[in-house]
């Protein structure tokens, strides 16, 4: 198998897209199909957050019925845990992939649940940032890629607390190398870790292999106060924090294999997020890598 930096050329360029997850839409939140019909460049693809215990909702199935592009964002697997990657779950992923026909799989590389995959056990914690945590997670990515036959892009998770001696970017650089894969870089999540670890927004990016970045997430957040401790709530609102923009701008200028950008705003009315899509479109113009294939 050619290495990732050869394989990435064959991935389709999806451009700008929007995310969803099961039951995300209510009467006053944006309809991804309406977004695409209004502006195909804003709704270029749908990133579908999948928790297999819930299935796929009608909005997603309606999008797929049109044959429009998707990516599959997992919400229910601890990549480092072989007991999470057993046959029954993999079979269900394959079944969902057959429906969604995603360009690739992606998702937060952290602890989606503690212990077994069980109701009430869901949470999302970042990985333990020590070198010995990298290998098992890389093995899980390889297993998932080999079984499903699609690229698997780990995403840096959100969090208000990070444990470990490694810089998060060093952890993910090592993960991408050991798993021979690319990365979904969530700019808002990275801004959170930089803030809570007392670093500047761009700290560590100069040493990160930017050619691994295939997808970006841009989302609004809110600075909160907890007993005097400022932290960022990753609320996917329409107000993108300056640190998130700074990271996005830095990466956009250097990510030579960038194929997709998701604006995460699934629980907002379309009227509220139009300006955000317009701004992201303007900032990302000219920054996507040439397409290797069409979806």
């Amino acid at each position: 198998m050619p290495d990732f930096l050869d394989r990435v050329r064959q991935l389709p360029t999806l451009g700008l897209g929007v995310s969803t997850e099961y039951g995300a839409r209510s009467a006053d939140t944006l309809d991804p199909r309406a977004l695409r019909c209004e502006n195909v460049h804003w709704g270029g693809f749908l990133e579908v957050g999948v928790e297999l215990a819930k299935g796929l909702d009608d909005d997603t199935l309606a999008w797929v019925a049109q044959g429009w592009p998707t990516t599959y964002h997992f919400l229910d697997v601890n990549l480092d845990d072989p007991l999470d990657l057993q046959r029954d779950w993999l079979d269900q992923v394959a079944a969902a992939v057959a429906v969604l026909k995603p360009a690739w799989l992606c998702g937060d590389a952290g602890l989606w649940h503690f212990g077994a995959r069980e109701r009430g056990h869901m949470l999302l914690l970042p990985p333990v940032l020590i070198p010995e945590a990298v290998g098992p997670m890389a093995a899980g990515i390889r297993t998932l890629r080999r079984t499903i036959g699609l690229e698997v892009l780990p995403e840096n998770p959100p969090g208000a607390v990070f444990v470990g001696s490694m810089h998060l970017l060093d952890f993910f650089a090592s993960l991408c190398e050991q798993a021979d894969t690319g990365m979904l870089l969530d700019c808002a999540h990275l801004a959170m870790v930089q803030r809570v670890t007392g670093r500047s927004a761009l700290d560590g990016l100069d040493g990160f292999p930017m050619d691994r970045v295939v997808e970006l997430h841009i989302a609004g957040g809110t600075v909160m106060d907890h007993d005097g401790l400022p932290w960022v709530d990753d609320d996917h609102g329409a107000a993108v924090l300056p640190d998130t923009w700074a990271i996005a701008e830095y990466v956009l200028a250097r990510a030579t294999n960038l194929k997709a950008v998701v604006v995460e705003c699934e629980r907002n009315p379309l009227d509220v997020v139009r300006p955000l899509f317009a701004e992201v479109e303007a900032r990302t113009a000219g920054h996507f890598a040439a397409t290797g294939a069409t979806q």
Binding site: D80, L83, L125, V128, E132, A133, G135, P136
Partner: peptide
């Protein structure tokens, strides 16, 4: 595929 080390599990 090996899972996380005992140490990583304890930390998690």
């Amino acid at each position: 595929m090996k899972g996380p080390t005992r140490r990583v599990q304890r930390l998690q």
